[in-house]
Amino acid sequence: MKPARFDYVAAASAEEALEALAQEGGNARILAGGQSLLPMLNMRLARPTVLIDIMGVDEWRAVDRDGDVLRIGAAVRQVALEQDPDLARFQPLLAAALPWVGHPQTRSRGTVCGSIAHADPSAELPLVLVALGGTVHLRSRRRKRVLSAQNFFTGMMSTAREDDELIEAIALPKARTRTGYAFREVARRHGDFAIVACAAVVNGVRAQLAVGGVADRPALCELPAPGAAGLDEALDDFAWSLEARDDLHATARYRRELVRRLGRTTLEEAVRCRA
C-alpha cells in the first residue's frame, strides 16, 4: 500500500504554486495537510504526476478576522482554529463542528481548505461552509474568483474548481447577534464520517438547517423556526427531498429519520444558544 511515483514541488510563494499548477493542470494535486489526499495516494486511488506543497506559502497561513468575515487561508491547519480560544465567539458553528472532524491526530495536519477542496459529502467543514453561506476564494495564474459555497460544491467529491485553480482561502461570516448556531452529528463511531450531520443557524423567525451525509453534497433548507407552525412537515419534505441512499452503515430510511429528528433537535439547540 504505497503511493505511485510523483514529482514534488514545495512552493515558496503563491506565484510559484500557481505557476506549477498552470503548467500541470489536472495531473497535479495540491498537497496541504494531506489528510484526505495521502490515503488516496497510498491506495493508489489518486495518481497525480506532481504534488504541489503549499504549506510553505506564508500568505496562505493567515486567519484574517478583520471585518465581518473570518478568512481562513489555504495553509491553515484545523488545529490552529481549534486551539484559538476566541473561535467560539467569532464563529460558534465552526467551533462546534471542528471536534467532529477526524481525530486530533489528523486535525493537527489537516487544513480547513483541504477538507473543503476534497468535498466529501459527509465531511463536517463543507457542511459548515454551506450552513453559514460562506465563500470559496479560488485563484489561478489567470484570475481570482469568489464562489458561494452552494455554487462551489457541484456533487460527490466534485467542485467548481478548475484544473489550474486552487482554493486560496475560504471566508465565513462571523457570528451575528441574536443568532443561534448548533451542530449535531450521528456517526457509527466518534471520528467517522457522518451518517447524518446537522448544522443549524436560527435568527429570529428565520431558521436554516444544513444537512451532510445524505445527499451528494451538503444541502441547505430554510425552515419555520422551532415553535412556528409547519416545522415537522417542512423537515419531512426536506428529508425526502435529499433522496437518501442505503449503504453499508445506514439505510435511506434511517437517514431520513435522523434528518427529521436530529434536525429538529439541532434547530432547538440553536434557538437555545441564541445570545
Binding site: Y8, L31, N42, Q105, T106, R109
Partner: peptide, 9 residues
C-alpha cells in the same frame, strides 16, 4: 503536534 506518519511524506 501528534500526527500520522503514514499520512505524511
Amino acid at each position: 503536534q501528534p500526527g500520522r506518519a503514514c499520512l505524511t511524506l
